[in-house]
Design a protein around this nucleic acid. Structure first.
Lengths: 336, 336
DNA sequence: TAAGGTTTTGCAAAGGTATGCAAAAGCAGC
DNA sequence: GCTGCTTTTGCATACCTTTGCAAAACCTTA
């Protein structure tokens, strides 16, 4: 039935040369004469030969596979990042093997599976990692990059947006907009992104001498954010809400407009975080802080491949600043 | 530095048994005594040993990797499908290796790369495949499933929604709703999904004796859909538009409401296709035909693994019917 | 205890490639 | 044509596992 794959041995026989010669032709930088290369390539295409990546990786110790751990894809920021990551790695000869992690605690098992595949590196998208686990990966010689998730450790590299600064920018904007009662529905406070955005926002408000008129944990979930919006509106009404990410901000806007009959930005101004594609759609037209997915992904790839090429390099933390994008969900304000 | 991975040989020495014994302990269904298993496992955990999947696949011929080709992820239907696919395969001991295909014609090269990784099977999400290419994959013994993309070939399996039937359901609804001027902004007519939805819709309208008041190719693109909406509205106005998928439908709604100042469904009723999560959000509240991602993915996995387990099995085509979900973008109508 | 059958174990080969080393080939200069 | 040097080639081994086969261990029964 399924014909045996053609091997370098087959090509060697067909071309009348040794197997090692064939291998060298397909190994960049190996020593082969032009004549040999031509001859082997001719036989190779005649037989439809291509090197077996798995066998190769067995001996080189390089699989050209990057493991990606991701816990959910329903925040549009992640599919976008995944697409860029995959394209970028592909362009450099790597490919992404996907591992979905339940929100539960099977992360250990997931990492084990990843290591079983002999990946060359690991990207964890918005997933936290115990210190012991990080140590295990590094001990196995597999560099790890935490994408969009900060953590207090020096064992692994990290790429995040400038969350504190972003939060501060929002504070500046809302204060400049003359808002008196400003509230916050935060991202999940169990994660550093959520905490940093909130802290940056709070600190900057304080710096302006403005008190926070309410803060609730939206946990990065649509339903929690809607509930939080209802709660906030039940008391003395805020006239502006900074929401910890765009997806929650959409939920808040929907709740305000269609459930409570309020106008955005007429009654309440809304600001999000991420700048996913939908934020620009007219139905929401959301003012938000951009997380520059392109630069974040580029940095992630560079860090990862950098450490693969030179294992002596040490882990690194990088924060990437993104601009505040003013749109219709806030009243226009001169740039500060 | 990076310590050499511990191998089955190391475990064997530590436990004082042969290397093959270690292998058998980690090979389900192999013949090992309880005593041996315990002893080996003890040494294995002591040394932190886990079998090397790549070396294993070299000899078994099974990599437990499934190649996924996908061309873009900005239609939310695909991230959702990808998440389900990955989770489902993971539960059955497989993992997804992602390949992004540019819309250009490098598909040949992409498939070659996939085959280089010795994948056990291939899923092509909404990507067309030449017959020759399909033949090549099957010749290599790699079953292929086209996900959400029909094609005239018996070489590969296919899973799609019931696109014709879906289109027909929309026609029924709009006619029952008493609409007089009904238009269609189709999905890309270069793909069978787009053509089938359009054909099912058109045929059913004809069956009701209703003429199509205009049809344009939206190419599954937001900008093309908006442009099409403008064009349609420039002439004698339709009072209902069936749009080839949800993402385009959102664009059409935005254009009608915010650019042309029209009301949906007051002036124009809109129906989409897919039922992505956002369709249920109040800002759009879109009537649409559901593509049951869960069942489609389950079927895809079953077909793929079925053919991997039994290569004699022949490719199969499956259409999965999804319900019409009535929401606020059409006026309510009794179910037909 | 010995014979017979069954289960468990070790040995050795295989899977497809890369690579160190030594031999062969090529080349330049006389 | 010979010497000395550089480049190219082949041989053999290694990477880590699974698995057919035969030997060893075990169990059962007489």
């Amino acid at each position: 039935m399924s014909t045996r794959r053609t091997t370098s041995q087959d090509v060697a026989e067909h071309a009348g040369v040794s197997q090692s010669a064939v291998s060298r032709v397909f190994t960049p930088g190996a020593s082969v004469s032009k004549k040999m290369a031509d001859r082997v390539r001719a036989s190779a295409t005649a037989l439809g030969y291509r090197p077996n990546v798995l066998a190769r990786s067995l001996i080189t110790g390089q699989s050209r596979i990057i493991g990606l751990v991701v816990s959910y894809l329903d925040n549009q920021f992640y599919p976008e990042a995944l697409e860029r990551l995959s394209r970028g790695l592909q362009a450099r000869g790597y490919h992404v093997l996907v591992f979905m992690s339940q929100d539960g605690e099977d992360l250990d098992e997931v990492i084990q599976e990843i290591l079983d595949y002999q990946v060359d590196g690991i990207v964890m998208a918005s997933v936290a990692m115990s210190d012991g686990l990080a140590a295990r990966c590094e001990a196995a010689g597999k560099p790890v990059v935490l994408f969009n998730r900060g953590q207090d450790t020096d064992r692994v590299s990290q790429v995040t947006a400038a969350n504190r600064t972003g939060g501060a920018k929002v504070a500046d904007l809302l204060v400049a907009g003359g808002h008196a009662r400003i509230a916050h529905i935060s991202g999940w406070l169990g994660a550093m992104t959520g905490r940093d955005r909130a802290a940056g926002f709070r600190d900057r408000l304080a710096h302006h001498g403005v008190d926070l008129a309410g803060e609730m944990d939206g946990e990065y979930r649509r339903d929690r954010a809607s509930a939080a919006a209802r709660d906030l509106m039940a008391g003395p009404r805020p006239d502006a809400i900074f929401v910890g990410n765009d997806v929650m901000a959409f939920a808040v806007m929907d709740t305000l407009r269609f459930e409570l009959g309020l106008s955005v930005p007429g009654d309440v101004a809304i600001v999000g975080f991420d700048d996913v594609a939908m934020a620009a759609w007219p139905a929401y037209d959301l003012t938000t802080v951009r997380q520059p997915a392109d630069r974040m992904v580029t940095a992630t790839i560079d860090m990862l491949l950098g450490r693969i090429d030179d294992p002596a390099r040490t882990p690194q933390k990088l924060e990437i600043d993104g601009p505040l994008i003013q749109r219709g969900s806030t009243r226009p304000v001169e740039a500060p």
